[in-house]
């Protein structure tokens, strides 16, 4: 072992913060699901899910320190997924 106590501290601090934030967000999402918001429920739940995924990707998957190339590749999946949703919905929602 060659890690000092300083190493240990920085090693745990960031991930623990991200983990606490993720748990808090999950709890808020769960609580909000029981409020009578109508269509607002799924909107709140999905916004929270997107924020959680962002926290996970940026801090735990470490895109924060990723190179531009890694960030571009990581966002391609998202990019093509948006196309999939837009084209599929434009078909179904425009049918008579």
């Amino acid at each position: 072992m060659n890690g000092s106590s300083g190493d240990h501290e920085t090693l745990w601090r960031g991930p623990l913060l991200a983990w606490s934030a993720l748990l808090a967000l999950a709890a808020i999402s769960l609580g909000s699901a029981y409020l009578p918001l109508g269509a607002g429920n799924v909107a709140v739940n999905l916004v929270i899910a997107v924020v959680m995924a962002a926290v996970l990707a940026i801090f735990l998957m470490d895109l924060r320190n990723g190179t531009t190339l890694v960030r571009i590749v990581a966002s391609t999946g998202l990019f093509w997924m948006i196309f999939m949703f837009v084209l599929t919905f434009s078909d179904y929602l425009s049918r008579g």
């Binding site: 029981y34 429920n41 799924v42 739940n45 990707a57 998957m61």
Partner: peptide, 25 residues
């Protein structure tokens, strides 16, 4: 290994509201 594991976690982050939280209010 780490990036793959986090991805599987991310999928659950979206499955959870769509499967478990829908229809609670």
């Amino acid at each position: 290994v780490a990036i793959y594991w986090h991805f599987v976690d991310t999928v659950w982050i979206f499955l959870y509201p769509l499967i478990y939280l829908a229809g609670r209010s």
